[in-house]
Simulated scan of single mutants.
Amino acid sequence: MAEGSYHHGNLRAALLTRAEAVLAESGVAALSLRGLARDLGVSHAAPTRHFRDRQAVLDALVTGGFTDLNRRLEEAVDGEGTVEARLAELGRVYVAFATERAALLGLMFTAKHEEDASPELDRIAHRSLDLAAGLVAEAQRAGAVRPGDPVRLAQVAFSTVHGLAALAVGGLLDDTPVDEATDLALEVLLAGLRAG
């Protein structure tokens, strides 16, 4: 692809799209600005107009990943239906993201736990838990979810759907379709969360 075909920020977006593909195909160690430039058919210097180094690309992937995940979760929280239906949709959205973008999610969690993680990263990384806890609290007010710390209940819910996604990504669900396993896991999880 010719360098001149990128304009109005398209090269930055193309670099990030290709970087996520390299991450999924070959892992973080295979990612380099030079390799991205080669893959996109631009000069070796072209990526440095958008990213100072490889770490800047990784940081942008992480920030973009959390932003996209949070946007999807917000849509589920603010969606139509009962609070239980929205809780189930929240779980489905998370499993879909975690299975579609597994390598990116792994990078996101690694970056989130780095000692030098920025306050901004910490804020956006915790947004998904805040959204889930807010919906759990709403469900408690509606009498649909048992009493308890909404954050702790949301953490347990996340561990359930995250574990399911990890099994799916690892090919450990045997012949069970991911959607079917997700629906069953959410049915059991919501039954456990119900009040009374």
Rank of each mutant, 00 (worst) to 15 (best):
A2R: 09
A2C: 05
S5N: 07
H7P: 07
R12C: 14
A19N: 12
A21H: 12
V22G: 01
A24E: 15
S26R: 15
G27W: 02
G27Q: 09
V28G: 13
A37S: 11
D39M: 09
L40Q: 11
G41W: 12
G41Q: 08
H44L: 07
H44F: 10
P47E: 07
P47W: 09
T48A: 09
R49Q: 14
H50E: 15
D53A: 15
R54P: 12
A56W: 14
V57M: 12
V57D: 08
L58W: 10
V62T: 12
T63Y: 06
G64C: 13
G64V: 13
F66K: 01
T67F: 08
D68I: 02
D68G: 08
N70Y: 00
V77E: 04
G79I: 09
G79H: 04
E80R: 01
V83W: 03
E84G: 01
L87R: 00
L87T: 02
L87I: 10
A88E: 09
E89Y: 04
E89F: 03
L90C: 04
G91I: 08
Y94L: 11
V95N: 12
A96W: 04
A102V: 03
L104R: 00
L105H: 11
F109P: 00
A111L: 08
E114I: 05
D116M: 04
D116E: 13
E120N: 06
R127S: 11
R127L: 10
S128I: 05
S128V: 06
L129Q: 00
L131I: 06
R141L: 11
A142I: 09
G143Q: 07
A144Q: 11
G148F: 06
R152A: 15
R152G: 11
L153W: 02
A154D: 02
A154N: 01
Q155N: 13
A157R: 06
F158K: 05
S159T: 12
V161N: 09
V161D: 05
G163S: 09
G163Q: 12
A165G: 10
L167K: 14
A168S: 13
V169T: 14
G170F: 03
G171K: 11
L172S: 09
L173D: 08
L173G: 07
D175R: 02
D175N: 07
T176E: 14
V178Y: 07
D183L: 10
D183Q: 06
L184I: 10
A185D: 00
L186I: 04
E187H: 04
E187D: 13
A191Y: 06
L193G: 03
R194T: 14
A195C: 11
